[in-house]
């Protein structure tokens, strides 16, 4: 197990380095921030002077060397826009994203297990059909569309919820609901699918024959079968939120890392782009390792490999 974890961590580190290198060069290919930072009326000389002073005219490899050197000293660069350490800005935004991801995924998994299990109990039944169509329809709607319609409906017309922003728990409802629908829809599908398989399997039949209660069969015996696929899909979805719930953050004014990342690349604020990517990648690699461990614990076959 220890050796396995060590190898996973090493793989993670290799990928992380690769990712940072890729981000560095791809970002530089999009052009330097001089024209965006200076006013449109700035003279050619002013532009040239600015670019030189900030090192944008140096050869790419020189810039890269500087970046690597700084990284080695845990210096993640200064944001050209915010004129403060880029990692400060990234760390400030990250908790919001993590909170959103945690609440969303907990709710999504909880709800999906219940709904998926009930749907699988009678495949083709009314509940199954309804749950299936509603969960899929929710997962198929463009999220910015759902978000704005939600604001107009629940905040403007009905006045039940605040339009956007942070503060009370009421402010959480719409952003979470918008984030929730896709993972919830996918997870219901996964739970339902694996449960249907499990319910017609030999060991559930045996349990039935032994007189185990139906409720226990659904929620204990069959549901256990869904654990691994649910973890896989949930991990994937959680990573997607950690990597940027851009649209929810933008529309509802939640200061998360996704919005920071996208705003920064639009403004060519490379230091922040790099810092945010580093942060989210570390989070996601760590989560993947935890998931792998969970796999090994839950499925003995994997442990033996």
């Amino acid at each position: 197990m220890g050796q396995y974890l060590g190898r996973r961590a090493l793989h993670g580190l290799v990928s992380l380095i690769g990712l940072l290198v890729l981000v560095f060069f791809l970002a530089r290919l999009t052009g330097d921030p001089t024209n965006l930072f200076l006013p449109l009326d700035a003279s050619l000389e002013a532009r040239q002077e600015f670019a030189e002073r900030h090192g944008f005219t140096d050869p790419l490899l020189t810039q890269f060397g500087r970046y690597v050197g700084d990284l080695a000293r845990l210096d993640f660069g200064i944001s050209i826009r915010q004129q403060r350490p880029a990692m400060d800005a990234a760390l400030e935004a990250f908790p919001t994203t993590l909170k959103l991801a945690a609440v969303t995924m907990t709710l999504a998994i909880g709800l999906a297990l219940v709904v998926g299990a009930l749907a699988a109990y009678r495949p083709g039944g009314l509940f199954d059909r309804t749950a299936n169509v509603i969960s899929l329809a929710g997962a198929s709607a463009p999220d910015f569309w759902v978000a704005i319609v939600g604001i107009l409906l629940f905040a403007v017309t009905l006045r039940w919820l605040p339009t956007s922003g942070t503060g009370t728990w009421l402010h959480w409802i719409m952003p979470i609901a918008v984030l929730l629908i896709r993972p919830f829809g996918l997870l219901v599908q996964v739970v339902r699918g694996t449960m249907i398989g499990a319910l017609s399997s030999a060991y559930v039949k045996t349990a039935r024959a032994k007189g185990v209660k139906e409720r226990a069969i659904i929620f204990v015996h069959a549901l256990r079968n869904s654990t691994l696929p649910v973890i896989t899909v949930a991990g994937d979805q959680a990573a997607a939120i950690v990597n940027g719930a851009v649209i929810v953050e933008t529309i509802f004014g939640w200061p998360g890392i996704g919005k920071l990342m996208i705003d920064s690349i639009i403004q060519r604020d490379f230091a922040i782009v790099q810092a945010t990517v580093l942060l989210t990648a570390v989070a996601i690699f760590s989560m993947n390792i935890v998931i792998d461990v969970a796999y090994a614990v839950l499925d003995p076959r994997i442990r033996h490999n």
């Binding site: 704005i148 604001i151 107009l152 905040a155 403007v156 339009t163 956007s164 922003g165 933008t250 529309i251 004014g253």
Partner: peptide, 12 residues
């Protein structure tokens, strides 16, 4: 405060 969507600003 700030919101990027005009619709949301008007709604607020």
């Amino acid at each position: 405060v700030w919101r990027s969507e005009s619709t949301v600003r008007a709604a607020m």
